[in-house]
Design a protein around this nucleic acid. Structure first.
Lengths: 261, 261
DNA sequence: CAGTGGTCTAGACCACAGA
DNA sequence: CTGTGGTCTAGACCACTGA
């Protein structure tokens, strides 16, 4: 349990003395956020190494010319991101082994956003239909209410990777096929003020039917990854429900879980 | 966009006037947490219905005898949980459609914790070995360092469901096989002060080999769900790395994603 | 014991939403 | 315009850690 780092910084209690923090009070960006961003950058570029102590909050606030609650708010946001750890009686230090990418909803954003960015997405179907029972239940609308059904084929390097089938409440937004292929569903939703907030996913596996094999360029019986998702905006409204099928030989879900304390 | 609820409460701006909030200043539980718990309970039992406004924060703090920052801290924790939505200029309201279960790390906890609770887990292997290269890399220890290797067979209703293979740094804790089957890995980690914080997972699919088929009571070539995970404690230390194989016919991952703003 | 983060207060001004 | 949440301040005391 010997600590091999930390003692070498003679005369300096904190690891970030030499760092220049520039806070712009005229900026519309909140001070706590400016500080958080600069701390995060210092961690990213190695100025603050894993295990380094930040120095106590009171000193920090005095040196930065901020109040302690503001400094705490900045630190807290990084703690929430998993970059820092607080220990009462000890101090705040940089987490020992950073998790590279905090891409929580990555697969979700990928699925919704990606379009023409390397992976290409072809819209196979885009129409409005009365909601079947399962879709209506998932979206929380009346059975038979008008929903948009979207079917897309996702490819990378000219190879098909996935078949994506999505349903959205029809009154949510208009989905022009050309814009959809160019912009991506996620950005079109952002553009009309819909903020994705959470999603419920079920991931399973099964073997390909003959038809799926043909469309995905796989043998019948090949292993497929399946995913069903219902996505909600920040008011808790269901805004998307879909079933996705991926070629297991070319795709895997990769994600980060965080414990909600 | 007609609002069919809310106007009926004559003479009351807020939905929680009739609610009795009991704050105990002598309790070791922080005031903001007491308030958050009681608000959450009110939402859970329907006293606060989806869409209800909470009433403005200043009034609330006066009526509760708390400062506004304290009330805000309580509200913020529920916003983070996805139970409330804040809208500047409008107010704070209960989210429209609650997500039933916020079981973020469910599969992780299930995998680590479950033991004798319906699903049974038999420890097939439990020994200490020098870390192979891939395991050493995942756990952030030196290649050849001593690690505990754990292989378990998970069953429900007498049917095998999954083969779980895990590696842990050997100095982390002692894993008595009997206690492991009775208590579960997760609880044994809690008991020695390890707090799980985050995990990185990769989920894929493939077809079963002949040997896997035999052990899982499936045909050779059956669809399998595969999962690799590295779990970290709150200091960022890797505490577990494992490869799990599930029968796709009897198991699917079911989880909730939250956007980290 | 001294030092740290954890909690809390009582104000202040600003930015944005909606009538 | 009024009302809301968003941000910020300058203090205070407590609980825990580790020497």
């Amino acid at each position: 349990m010997a600590r091999t780092r930390g003692a070498a910084r003679a005369g300096s209690v904190s690891a970030l003395d030499p760092l220049g923090f520039a806070l712009d009070r005229g900026s519309p960006v909140p001070l706590y956020h400016q500080l958080a961003q600069q701390l995060e950058a210092a961690i990213a570029d190695g100025s603050l190494a894993p295990g380094d102590l930040l120095g106590n909050e009171v000193d920090l606030s005095v040196r930065l010319g901020l109040s302690r609650p503001t400094v705490r708010q900045a630190i807290q946001s990084l703690v929430d991101k998993g970059l820092l750890v607080r220990r009462r009686g000890v101090g705040t230090q940089v987490v020992h082994s950073q998790v590279k990418r905090p891409l929580e909803l990555s697969s979700l954003y990928d699925d919704l956003e990606a379009a023409g960015q390397g992976p290409t997405t072809r819209v196979v179907r885009n129409e409005r239909v009365p909601a079947p029972a399962d879709v209506a239940a998932a979206l929380g609308v009346a059975e038979g209410a008008e929903v948009t059904v979207l079917e897309r084929l996702r490819s990378t390097h000219g190879q098909p990777v996935a078949i994506l089938c999505n349903y959205l409440p029809a009154d949510l937004l208009d989905l022009d096929t050309a814009r959809l292929e160019a912009t991506g569903l996620y950005r079109m939703m952002r553009a009309v003020g819909i903020t994705l907030h959470s999603a419920h996913q079920t991931v399973g596996a099964r073997r390909a039917t003959a038809g799926e094999g043909t469309r995905l360029d796989e043998q019948e019986g090949a292993a497929l990854l399946t995913m069903q998702r219902t996505a909600y905006d920040d008011t808790g409204r269901a805004v998307e429900y879909g079933t996705h099928i991926y070629r297991a030989s070319r795709y895997a879900f990769d994600f980060q879980l965080m414990v909600r304390s």
